[in-house]
C-alpha cells in the first residue's frame, strides 16, 4: 500500500529516478541539501520523548516513592502507593463513573449526532448552514465556560431545568445535590459539548458519499429507508470509528472542566472521574505517590482501550 509508493524516493541522499540513468541535475544537488531522514524526524521524536515518554517513565518511577511534589525528598515505598490506590473506595467510584460517563455519553456523541447529520444532509435545505452553525457552537465554548452557563440553568430557583421534567410529571429536582441527578447533569453538559464535534465529523463522512451511488440506487427504486440502511450506514462506518475514538479521547478532559465547575466531584464522589481524582490527589492533597500510581493505572487502562479499539477498527478495515 502506501509504503511501496514511496520506494523510489526513499533511497535518497542523492535522489534518483530508479530506471533512468543519473541525470546531470542529480549531481548538482546543493551541498547543504539535507542528507537523511534524521533532521526531519528528530524534532518530533525529541518532542514526544521529552513531553510524553520521558514523563511517562518518570511518573512510573515516582509511583514507587512517597513525595509531596516539591519540598520533601522522595522516600522509597515500593508498591505501597498502588496498594493505597486500590484500597481506597474513591478509586472504585471514580473508575465506575469514568466507565459510566463513557457509556452514557456515547449515545449523545455517536447515535444522536449521526442521526442529526443524516437528517440535515437529507432534509436540511436552506437551513443546513443554520444547523451546522448552532450544533457546532458548543465545541467552541470551553468546557468550564459552558458549565457555568449550564449551572445557571440547573439553578433550582429559576427551575428552568425542571420545566421539561414537570411536563413528564416528575417533581422538581435539586440537580447538583443528589448523586444520580448530579451525574446526569454532568453528562448533559458533556454531551452538549461533544455533540457538535461528532455532528461535523458525520457531516464530513456524508459529503464524501458519492452522489452517483445515491442516484443509481434511487434509479433502482430503492426507498429512503433502504438507501439509509444499505448504503449510507455502511459508508459511515469508518467515520463512526473516528467519532467513537474522538469521544474516548475528549470525554475525559472535557468532563473534567464540567465536574470542576458543577460539582467538584461530589456529592460523595458521585460525579468524580479518574482524572478528577488524580487532580485532587496530586494538587488538592499534594500526595504525589498515590497520584503517580493512579497516573500509571489510568495510562495502562486508557492505552488498553484505545489499542483494542484500533485493533478492532483495523481488522474491520482490513476485511
Amino acid at each position: 500500500m502506501t509504503h511501496t509508493r514511496t520506494s523510489p524516493a526513499t533511497s535518497a541522499p542523492t535522489p534518483t529516478t530508479p530506471p533512468a540513468a543519473p541525470t546531470p541535475a542529480a549531481s548538482s544537488v546543493p551541498a547543504r541539501a539535507v542528507r537523511g531522514p534524521a533532521p526531519y524526524l528528530v524534532p518530533a521524536l525529541l518532542a514526544v520523548g521529552l513531553t510524553m515518554y520521558g514523563p511517562l517513565l518518570a511518573v512510573t518511577a515516582l509511583s514507587l516513592f512517597d513525595f509531596n511534589l516539591t519540598t520533601q525528598t522522595p522516600r522509597w515505598v515500593g508498591a505501597d502507593n498502588y496498594r493505597e490506590v486500590f484500597a481506597s473506595p474513591e478509586t472504585g467510584t471514580a473508575l465506575r463513573n469514568t466507565v459510566a460517563y463513557m457509556a452514557t455519553i456515547l449515545p449523545l456523541s455517536v447515535l444522536a449526532p449521526g442521526l442529526a447529520a443524516i437528517a440535515v444532509w437529507r432534509f436540511g435545505g436552506r437551513l443546513t448552514g443554520f444547523y451546522r452553525t448552532v450544533f457546532f457552537l458548543p465545541v467552541l465554548i470551553p468546557p468550564a465556560v459552558g458549565a457555568v452557563m449550564w449551572q445557571w440553568i440547573f439553578n433550582p430557583v429559576l427551575g428552568i431545568a425542571d420545566a421539561p421534567l414537570e411536563l413528564l410529571g416528575l417533581g422538581p429536582v435539586s440537580w447538583l445535590t443528589q448523586p444520580v441527578s448530579a451525574f446526569v447533569a454532568v453528562t448533559i453538559v458533556a454531551g452538549w459539548k461533544v455533540f457538535g464535534l461528532s455532528f461535523i465529523l458525520f457531516t464530513a463522512g456524508l459529503t464524501a458519499i458519492d452522489a452517483n451511488v445515491m442516484a443509481a440506487a434511487r434509479l433502482d427504486r430503492a426507498g429512503e429507508w433502504q438507501l439509509l440502511r444499505h448504503i449510507v450506514v455502511p459508508l459511515l462506518r469508518p467515520v463512526t470509528t473516528v467519532v467513537v475514538f474522538a469521544t474516548v479521547v475528549f470525554v475525559g478532559p472535557w468532563t473534567f472542566g464540567v465536574i470542576d465547575v458543577l460539582t467538584q466531584g461530589g456529592p460523595a464522589g458521585a460525579t468524580s472521574n479518574v482524572y478528577y481524582l488524580l487532580y485532587q490527589l496530586g494538587f488538592g492533597y499534594v500526595d504525589g505517590g498515590p497520584a503517580s500510581a493512579l497516573s500509571v493505572l489510568i495510562t495502562v487502562g486508557f492505552g488498553a482501550v484505545v489499542a483494542a479499539q484500533m485493533r478492532l477498527s483495523g481488522r474491520r478495515a482490513g476485511r
Binding site: Q151, P156, P267
Partner: peptide, 16 residues
Amino acid sequence: PAVGEAEAIAIFESGQ
C-alpha cells in the same frame, strides 16, 4: 430544603 450550598445561596438571594 434538601439542596446544596450554592443552590441555597441562590434561593436566599432570590428572596425565597
